[in-house]
Measured scan of single mutants.
Amino acid sequence: MQGVVKVNSALNMRSGPGSNYGVIGTLRNNDKVEIIKEVDGWYEIRFNGKVGYASKSYITIVN
């Protein structure tokens, strides 16, 4: 499943599904990501070869 990031500035990509996990990357508005699965309001995603987590509130699913 594919998604597009929708933010005003930047979205942190984290090592786990929560804001208490470390930041491993930064996503920008309109970045395209691969959604692997949903975990407690977060998406596990793949972006630029990295796998991490981002809040699903800021990612819109596209077909």
Rank of each mutant, 00 (worst) to 15 (best):
N8R: 08
D31C: 04
G18E: 03
V51K: 10
S57W: 09
G22P: 13
K37D: 09
Y43P: 00
I36T: 07
G41P: 07
G41Y: 05
Y43R: 00
G18L: 01
L27T: 03
S55C: 06
A10Y: 11
K6R: 08
A54S: 06
V51L: 12
N63K: 09
A54W: 00
D40M: 08
G49E: 14
M13P: 03
M13C: 04
R28W: 13
Y53A: 01
I24T: 11
G52R: 01
G16Q: 03
F47G: 05
Y58W: 10
I45L: 11
E44T: 04
V4E: 09
G25L: 11
M13D: 00
T60A: 12
G25P: 00
M13W: 08
G49K: 09
G41T: 09
Y58G: 13
I24M: 10
M13S: 02
K37E: 10
Y53T: 00
I36L: 11
V4M: 09
E44S: 04
P17S: 03
Q2A: 12
R14N: 08
S55I: 12
R28V: 15
D31R: 03
K56F: 04
R14E: 02
T26F: 10
Y43V: 05
V23F: 04
R46G: 11
G16A: 03
T60S: 14
Y43L: 12
G3Y: 02
V51R: 06
N12S: 14
N30W: 08
S9N: 13
I24R: 03
I45E: 00
G52M: 03
K37H: 12
V51W: 09
V62H: 12
A10R: 09
I35L: 06
Y58S: 14
N29M: 08
T26N: 09
E38S: 07
T60H: 13
R28Y: 15
R28H: 13
G22Y: 09
N30R: 07
S57I: 11
G41Q: 10
R14Y: 15
E34A: 04
N8A: 14
Y43W: 08
S57A: 14
T26Y: 10
Y53G: 00
V5R: 01
E38M: 06
P17E: 01
V39N: 07
S15H: 09
Q2P: 09
Y58C: 05
G49Q: 14
I24S: 07
G16S: 03
N20I: 11
K50N: 14
G3P: 02
G3S: 03
N48Y: 09
G49R: 08
T26Q: 10
I59K: 00
N29T: 09
Y43Q: 01
S57K: 11
A10I: 10
T26K: 10
E44D: 02
M1N: 12
M1E: 13
S15I: 12
T26E: 15
M13F: 12
I59P: 00
I59Y: 01
G49S: 10
R28S: 15
G18N: 07
V62E: 12
I35R: 00
V7Q: 05
F47S: 08
G25N: 08
E34C: 04
S19H: 15
N12W: 07
Q2G: 09
I45Q: 00
D40E: 12
R46S: 15
G25I: 08
L27D: 00
G25E: 11
I36P: 01
Y43T: 02
